[in-house]
C-alpha cells in the first residue's frame, strides 16, 4: 500500500469489496435457481486463480488466454459438482444439499493442495501502467479491472435473469420447481447451468484477483465466508445488493484494519454477518421456504 490515510483505505476496501461482490454474485446465481447456498463458491474462485497461473506460468500461454480458459474450465467444474454431488441427491432436503456443498468445498481444497502444493503463484497485472492517483489514494490498474469485472458481471447476470427466456426459466425453477417442470423446463439441466455459471463467475473473480493476492489452495474459505457476508448483507438473490454488500464488507474490513487493528481484519466481516443475522434473521431463515414442499 503506497498511499496512506482514509482515501487509500477506501480504495483498498472498494477493490477488495468488488471481489467479495463477485463471490456474492456467484452465491446468488446458484441460490436463485436452486435455493441452495453453495459453499464451494470460494473454491471456484480459488480454482479460477490456480488455473490462470497454471496456464500462464507453467503452460506459458498468453495472458489473455490464461485468463479466459479458466472460465470455461471452472464452468465445467461447476457443472461436474452439480452432476456428481447435487443431482444424485435431488430428493434430499435443501439443508442436506447445503451441507454437501461444504463437503465439496473441503474436497476441492484438498485436491488443489495435492495438485498445486501449498505454494502461492503469481500472475502479472492485466494491463501495465502507472497507478492512478485520485484524491490522495493510489489505485493500481488491476484494482480498476477488479471493479469493472464485478460491475459488468453483476449487470450481465441481472440482465440474463430478468430479460432472457433461459434466465426467466432459471428463476422459475427456484420459485416453483413443480410448475417449472410442468411448463416443460428441464429443472435439473437448469440447476446444472446455474452451477456452471457460478463456476464461471468464480473463475472471473479468481483470475482478476490473482495479480493482487497470489492464489493458493486455501484462499477459497475466507472468500466464501466474506462473499456470503456480502450476499446476506445485500439481501441474498439480488445482484445489486451483492455489489453493495461486497463493497460495504470490503470497506469495513479495510477501515477496521487501518484504524482499529489489522489483526482483527477478518473479524470485522464476521461481526457484520452476526449483526445482520441478529437484526434481520428472516433473510436467512427464509431460505428453505423459498421452495415448495415436495
Amino acid at each position: 500500500m503506497d498511499g496512506s490515510g482514509l482515501p487509500q483505505f477506501i480504495a483498498t476496501g472498494i477493490t477488495q469489496g468488488a471481489i467479495y461482490a463477485l463471490v456474492a454474485v456467484g452465491f446468488n446465481l446458484v441460490y436463485s435457481a436452486t435455493g441452495i447456498i453453495n459453499f464451494a463458491q470460494g473454491e471456484f474462485v480459488m480454482l479460477g486463480g490456480m488455473f490462470a497461473v497454471t496456464c500462464y506460468s507453467m503452460l506459458h500461454l498468453p495472458l489473455a488466454l490464461a485468463v479466459v480458459l479458466p472460465i470455461a474450465a471452472v464452468m465445467l467444474v461447476g457443472a461436474g459438482v452439480h452432476y456428481f454431488t447435487i443431482r444424485p441427491l435431488r430428493r434430499a432436503h435443501l439443508l442436506t444439499l447445503i451441507m454437501v456443498t461444504v463437503g465439496v468445498s473441503v474436497a476441492l481444497r484438498g485436491l488443489a493442495k495435492v495438485v498445486w502444493g501449498a505454494d502461492a503463484y503469481p500472475l502479472p497485472p492485466f494491463s501495465a501502467g502507472e497507478s492512478l492517483s485520485l484524491a490522495g489514494a493510489n489505485i493500481n490498474p488491476q484494482s480498476l479491472w477488479v471493479m469493472a469485472c464485478a460491475a459488468a458481471t453483476g449487470a450481465a447476470l441481472t440482465l440474463f435473469l430478468r430479460c432472457t427466456l433461459q434466465g426467466r426459466a432459471m428463476v422459475a425453477c427456484a420459485l416453483n420447481r413443480r410448475a417449472a417442470q410442468l411448463v416443460g423446463i428441464r429443472v435439473e439441466r437448469m440447476h446444472m447451468w446455474a452451477f456452471a455459471l457460478a463456476g464461471g463467475v468464480g473463475a472471473i473473480a479468481g483470475s482478476v484477483l490473482a495479480p493482487i493476492a497470489l492464489p493458493s489452495y486455501d484462499v477459497g474459505l475466507a472468500l466464501a465466508l466474506k462473499g456470503f457476508c456480502a450476499a446476506v448483507l445485500g439481501g441474498i438473490g439480488s445482484n445489486a445488493g451483492a455489489l453493495l454488500g461486497g463493497v460495504l464488507v470490503g470497506l469495513l474490513e479495510s477501515l477496521g484494519a487501518g484504524y482499529v487493528s489489522s489483526g482483527y481484519k477478518d473479524a470485522f466481516a464476521f461481526f457484520v454477518l452476526l449483526l445482520v443475522l441478529l437484526l434481520r434473521p428472516s433473510g436467512l431463515l427464509n431460505v428453505p421456504t423459498r421452495r415448495e414442499e415436495r
Binding site: R168, A172, N176, A179, A180, V183
Partner: peptide, 25 residues
Amino acid sequence: TQVPEGRQVFSEMTVLDNLRMGAYL
C-alpha cells in the same frame, strides 16, 4: 399440459411472465 393442484403460479413473477413461461417450449 397439466394445471397442478394448488395452482402453483410463479408468485414473484408478473402475470405476463407467468403466461410467457407457459409457452417456454
